[in-house]
Amino acid sequence: MIVYILCFALFLVGIYGALTKRDLIKIILSIGIMGYAVNLMFILFAYKTGASFAILTKEGINTNMVDPLPQALILTSIVIELGITALLVTLAIRLFEKYKTFDITKIRRLSG
């Protein structure tokens, strides 16, 4: 149980950072932390003490194995996060070109 609580704490760290930090790069990192917490949660759901990896071995089918599907799922979600992070970094660079700052409180041309 304690691992789930720690995993959720990591998620809260990410969401805290995304909502309170003023630096664009720190916000992007916080989004990443949130994503990692959820990925970790998937792996924890699939985890089984003492089980081994889920592939065929030359000795035959391995009966005591962890659930392989969440691993495939988080691989997909990692790729998506990679794409989103690259896009966010690109936008941050462009914003820096335009506003000459990474401070989100000074990037306020839109309002209302």
Partner: peptide
């Protein structure tokens, strides 16, 4: 894809001022 993404990010400050 990955290489082109990093390449594109790295050439950003080469074009002066966007």
């Amino acid at each position: 894809g990955l290489f082109v993404v990093v390449w594109t990010l790295s050439v950003f400050h080469l074009d002066k001022g966007g």
